[in-house]
Amino acid sequence: MNNTSWLAYIALTAAIVVVPPLLIGFIRKTKARLQNRVGAPYHQPLLDLIKLLSKGELVSEHASWVLRGAAIANVSIALLLAVTSPWIPGMPRPFDVDIFLFIYLFALMRFFSVLSALDTASPFGGFAAGRDLTLAVLVEPAVMLCLTALAVVAQTANLSEIFSFTGKALSVQAGLWVMAGCGLYLSSLVELSRMPADDPTTHLELTMVHEAMILENSGPNLALTEYATALKLLVLMGVSGQCFLHAFAAVWQTSPSMQTACGAGAVLLAVAVTALIEATGVKLRWTKLPEFIAYAITFGLLCLVVALGVVK
């Protein structure tokens, strides 16, 4: 291993530790500015995490080791995803990740969240787990279709290879990339429990989904859970942002460092759009959500139609 790749690994580690909470702070700040508030500083979520880690915790007497174990498992899976999946161009790859591994690592995270929500035997955890799984069932086909369509055109299931700017077959498919980007972005909004699907700031029992699942966590456990959510935000916003980046032919002809800069810009832009949706939009009624997710599935199906046309 040479010097530059060591530097790249150090930069990646630093980015994975620092950037996800900063992105959450960026969303909150943008939202606050759009609502004419000053808002907390960008690094506030980072400080919150440090404070939570040093706090004591209160665990329900009905809870078992599963509550703690699920939080740790979630953080580990999220870290694995952040290290391996291509959320920014030109990042070092210790090993490659398959599209199916990518999708099912997210499903595994969801499994552990649901497990920890059910473990404390609180009614809130129970109904939130049910709602979360309902959304998961609806949103998974969309992610699957988008990524599979890309994989079919690229003739490889290796996610890093698909997003590597080197595949000749994919680099001319601007339309496919835009459609896949739209589909992945809409489904990541649901996956991340962001605004149209779930309000991350609400604590009203009628509307909570993700918040009710982590209600029983406190102290270090809550810090781990929130950090895992922030990592998930980084990975999903990164991957869907990259899709739009790939649609611009000019980007894949520039130098690798320029690509990395554009990738960082794409992540920020995707997060900023999320903040914009949250500041201006409203949470959808629960019965309207399948209609919202249908848009994501529609983009997935359109990707599939294009991919079938290309391969034939």
Binding site: A174, G175, Y295, T298, L302, V306, K312
Partner: peptide, 24 residues
Amino acid sequence: MSLSSFDLLLSAIAITAIMMLGTT
């Protein structure tokens, strides 16, 4: 096969029409 810019414009037209099916 890859879509030209004009084809992409046409596909955007078809997609907005399909989007109209998605809302009442």
